[in-house]
């Protein structure tokens, strides 16, 4: 029962106009410490966020994570670098509706824009409601400065079964 918005910049529900959106629709505002959202390995990443549109007593748990995942032709792989889960009302009150955290980034894997393999880094905030549903908000950033790959002129493509 998960509702997810993977690419918040590009994806928007069709009926997501302010008039059509329910009043209890969660809305997450997140600010990175670097304006361009570009970080180098081992650098500290700091984020501040604000969650609105939900009542506190309906929140069962909250998770904050920093992870990489793959995109492209292959099945999705994921690696979690930082994970926090808050389950009691006292701890949830400390991180909701506003909060911030800082994480030192690892040395790898770097963000990569390949042809059939892509690596993305992101911050995810996931809110679990008492009803059993959850809401996840994902905010992509760049680790490292690897130039995107391009298909060479004499690309060799082989397909194995």
């Amino acid at each position: 029962m998960s509702d997810a918005a993977r690419s918040p910049q590009s994806w928007e529900p069709r009926d997501a106009t302010p008039e059509a959106r329910p009043t209890s629709f969660p809305r997450v505002m997140l600010q990175f410490s670097h304006p361009g959202r570009c970080y180098q390995p081992l650098e500290w990443l700091t984020v501040e966020y604000a969650v609105s549109g939900i009542a506190e007593d309906r929140t069962r748990a909250m998770e904050r994570s920093l992870l990489w995942y793959t995109e492209g032709k292959g099945e999705e792989d994921m690696g979690v670098h930082f994970f926090e889960r808050f389950t009691t009302q006292e701890t949830i009150a400390g991180v909701m509706p506003e909060g911030s955290f800082a994480v030192q980034l690892p040395s790898s894997p770097l963000s990569y824009e390949g042809v059939i393999v892509k690596i993305r880094w992101c911050v995810r905030l996931r809110v679990f409601f008492e009803t059993g549903r959850d809401h996840v908000s994902e905010h992509v950033f760049t680790l490292g400065s690897v130039p995107p790959a391009a298909i060479p002129v004499r690309a060799v493509e082989r397909l194995y079964v």
């Binding site: 918040p8 809305r27 959202r37 908000s137």
Partner: peptide, 25 residues
């Protein structure tokens, strides 16, 4: 705020969907 993330989801109680659709990712 420099960046805003949104997701869908309503805290209202409703049964889970049995049939699925694919919308992008």
């Amino acid at each position: 705020m420099e960046f805003c993330g949104r997701g869908i989801g309503s805290p209202a109680m409703r049964p889970p969907r049995f049939f699925a659709k694919k919308r992008g990712h």
